[in-house]
Structure formats: C-alpha cells, structure tokens
C-alpha cells in the first residue's frame, strides 16, 4: 500500500511541473466551455451538450491515453521504473499508483465537464460513472502502449494513432451511421451513447467499457511480459 501511495504522490507532484501533461487536463474542458457558451447555446440546431460530449470523449480517449503512455514511457526510458521495481514495487503497484492518480485527475476533469454540461443530478451520476470507467480503460491502454515503447518518442508514435482512433471515432460516429455501428465496441463511444440519451440503462455501456478494460489489462500484462525491465 505504501508503494502505491508513494507513486501516487510522485505523480501528483510531477504533473504540476509537467505542463505538457497538465494542459491535457485543462484545455479540453476549456474548449468545451467556450464552444458551449458561444456556439451551442446560441444555436437551436445544435444539442446544448454536444461539445461537452465531444470533448469529454476526446479527453477520455485521446488525452488520457497520451498522458499515461507518455509518463510510463518516460519512466522506462530514464530507467526510473527499474529502480522502483528493485525497491520492491511490483508492476501492478506501479500501475495502480500511477493510474490511480490519473483516474483521480480524470475524475476531477469529468466533474468540470458535467458542470459545463449543466446536467441534472442523476444525469451527472450516469455521466461520471461512464467517464470514470472510460478513464480507467484509457489509462490501462496508455500504460500498455507506454510499456511497449522504447522511449517517449516511440510512445507518441504508437500512442497518437491509437489515441486519435479512440478519441475521435465518437465524434465521427455522430455524423456517420456506419462508423457509429463499428464504434459500438469502443469505450469512448459509450460516453456518446449515455450522454445523448440519459434514459438508457447504464448496464450495456458499462459492460462494454469493462470488456475494453479486460482487453487492455491483458495487453498490459503481455507488454510487461515481453518487455519486462529491459526498457
């Protein structure tokens, strides 16, 4: 437990000194706020929370995958992870400590999205449920990408296309039915599904997100087995 706490605190201190990552948690809610206030609220043809949904999906997918993969690839590249593991930290403690912080930070950002979306109480709970599980999926996916990457540059090369696919597919799905069908298996699309109709049951979207988490955890385990501490 103390290892997880130590890594959690390290991430918390590090993020405030790492503007490249910090900005990912700020910029998308800011864009959602501006677009909602300036465009959506003055245009009856646009759903009032369209930009919130869009930016939240991009944040959960793209932002967090990029952040998690970058941080883990950096720890591998600089051999910091090696020293942690020699000090007795297991890979899963590292993942929980690092991921736990990003989950908390992602939850805070999700609350901001919910406030911008001006959701009712039950809608907010549903939104947070799908965002938090989606955030967890993104972090594990990012961790697997980070673990597979030799360095931060490689993590960007590998992570960016993946992040673009998971982050932007829900946006494209809004305008294209075929993409919407394919996107049904993606955790980020479930944010769209829930926010577009808060009356739908959460069971199916959560099940899809859980399935994504299982697949990504398996990927992380494979990546760790393949790469280990070699970096």
């Amino acid at each position: 437990m103390r290892s997880i706490k130590a890594i959690f605190i390290k991430q918390a201190k590090d993020i405030f000194k790492n503007p490249m990552v910090l900005v990912l948690f700020i910029i998308l809610p800011v864009v959602a706020l501006i677009m909602t206030q300036l465009v959506a609220k003055s245009n009856d043809d646009i759903p009032s929370n369209m930009f919130v949904t869009m930016m939240a999906a991009i944040f959960a997918g793209m932002g967090l995958v990029t952040a998690a993969s970058g941080v883990i690839a950096e720890d591998i590249e600089r051999k910091s992870l090696r020293f942690l593991i020699i000090a007795g930290v297991t890979p899963y403690q590292y993942l929980i400590g690092t991921g736990g912080f990003y989950l908390l930070a992602g939850t805070a950002t999700s609350v901001v999205f919910a406030l911008i979306g001006d959701f009712a109480f039950t809608e907010t709970l549903k939104f947070l449920a799908i965002m938090i599980t989606g955030t967890a999926a993104s972090i594990i996916l990012g961790a697997a990408i980070g673990m597979l990457s030799k360095n931060q540059q490689a993590a960007t090369s590998l992570g960016m296309p993946v992040a673009v696919i998971v982050g932007f597919t829900p946006m494209i799905a809004t305008f294209n039915e075929t993409v919407a069908k394919v996107a049904g298996v993606l955790y980020t699309q479930q944010i769209n599904v829930v926010v577009n109709d808060f009356s739908v049951s959460l069971a199916r979207p959560l099940l899809i997100v859980a399935a994504n988490i299982v697949v990504f955890t398996f990927l992380f385990a494979l990546a760790y087995k393949k790469k280990g501490l070699k970096g």
Binding site: K5, A6, K10, S80, R82
Partner: peptide, 29 residues
C-alpha cells in the same frame, strides 16, 4: 533485494522533482 542499494550508469532520477522529493519517494516505499 530490499537490503541492497543500486547505482547504475542511468540514474533513473525524476528530473522535474527536486532532490529531497526524489529521495522521499523511496523513503516512503
């Protein structure tokens, strides 16, 4: 293993953190 200390060519330090923050992580662990 926990009774060993290690210093490698690659220092593995957290570059954005200060000296005491780097050590406190391991003190906590």
């Amino acid at each position: 293993m926990l009774e060993t200390g290690l210093m490698l060519d690659a220092d593995g330090l957290y570059v954005r953190l200060n000296c005491v923050e780097n050590l406190n992580i391991f003190a906590d662990i």
